[in-house]
Structure formats: structure tokens, C-alpha cells
């Protein structure tokens, strides 16, 4: 990766595991890929409910300024999160979204966007809850920032005991779908 840090925002509604997906990405990059990742999140009543978010800065060098203002990549899992956070996306940024939950409008120009039916994939695996991990897999494939190995280790270390297998399957689903999309578009 280049020396410039990559700033990511993940948005969704409370209960979707937005923060956990941020933690997995940060953990994979910093602990298992040996670089630096700073995660911040909004707290308080305004951060609960409809549009919660996690911000992660991935960097080869230690991160100094910890907050994300204009993310390079926006991952959204709800329409409200899309509405709230998409105006901040960098002009040439990347948008990743769950296609059954988010309907992007045409107002944002210049960005690259990729979508995935993550909820359906999660349902096929028998647990709608693993939607966030499908999105982590999708993000890993599209961004090419995390090693697959590191992402899997981070998932195993972060999800509840007994759900590792399921979550790894969810990751694989998102990852493979993402890789196919990238291959097709290149």
C-alpha cells in the first residue's frame, strides 16, 4: 500500500454489528498484518439507533490525527447511514453498500461503488446477524488492504465462541463475491 493512510467509515443501524466490523478490520490490519489502525466511534444517545458508525484509519505509519472527516471508503448497511454519511465521502472515494438495504441516489459523482446482497448471503448461512462479517469480507476483497489470513484471524479472535465457523463462512461469502466483482470490472 502507499504511505498515505486509508480512512474508512462503516455505517449502519444499531444492532448490525457496525462497531465489531470496524474492530475486525482494525485488528486484522494492526495486530495480524503488523501495521497501524486507529478506530474511533461516536458515543452517546445521538450515536445510538438509526445511524451508528465506526471510523478506522489504516496506516503504515503510526496514526497521529485520530478522527476521520472525509473517508476514502464508506461501507453502509442502512439507508439512513447512507443518507447521513455519503456526503462526506471523498470525491474519488469508494462506496460499498448492502444492495437490499441501501438505494444510492445519483447525486454522488466520481466515486466507485460496489454492492452486495449481504443480507441474503447471511440468511443463506442461517444467521442474518453475520451480515456485518459478509461486509468485512466484501471490504477486504475490494479494498485489497487486509491480508485474507489476517482478516480470518481477526474474525476468529473477535466473534463469540462457537460462532467462528459460521463467521468465517460469512467472510468467505463476502470475500469471494467481492473478488468476482473486481475481476469483472477490471
Amino acid at each position: 500500500m502507499s504511505k498515505a493512510p486509508t480512512e474508512i467509515r462503516i455505517g449502519g443501524f444499531g444492532g448490525q454489528g457496525v462497531i465489531l466490523s470496524g474492530i475486525i478490520i482494525g485488528k486484522a490490519f494492526s495486530i495480524y498484518d503488523g501495521k497501524h489502525a486507529t478506530l474511533t466511534q461516536a458515543f452517546g444517545p445521538e450515536a445510538r439507533g438509526s445511524a451508528c458508525s465506526a471510523q478506522v484509519i489504516l496506516s503504515a505509519e503510526p496514526v497521529l490525527y485520530p478522527y476521520v472527516a472525509k473517508p476514502d471508503t464508506l461501507v453502509v448497511m442502512s439507508q439512513e447511514a447512507y443518507t447521513k454519511f455519503s456526503p462526506d465521502l471523498k470525491k474519488d472515494g469508494v462506496l460499498l453498500y448492502e444492495e437490499d438495504l441501501v438505494q444510492p441516489d445519483d447525486t454522488i459523482k466520481g466515486i466507485k461503488s460496489y454492492s452486495i446482497p449481504a443480507t441474503r448471503f447471511a440468511e443463506e448461512l442461517g444467521r442474518k446477524l453475520v451480515l456485518n462479517i459478509v461486509m468485512v469480507g466484501f471490504f477486504s476483497a475490494i479494498s485489497n488492504l487486509l491480508s485474507e489470513k489476517a482478516a480470518k484471524k481477526a474474525i476468529t479472535a473477535s466473534v463469540p465462541k462457537g460462532t467462528e465457523e459460521l463467521n468465517l463462512k460469512a467472510f468467505k461469502k463476502g470475500y469471494e463475491y467481492g473478488k468476482k466483482l473486481v475481476a469483472r470490472s477490471s
Binding site: I23, G26, S30, I31, H36, A37, T38, L39, T40, Q41, F43, V63, P66
Partner: peptide, 10 residues
Amino acid sequence: DECVGHMTEK
């Protein structure tokens, strides 16, 4: 401070 307290890093 709140920023350090709530910031996650290695």
C-alpha cells in the same frame, strides 16, 4: 481524555 479513552488501537 475521551478521545484516548474511546480510541481503539494496538
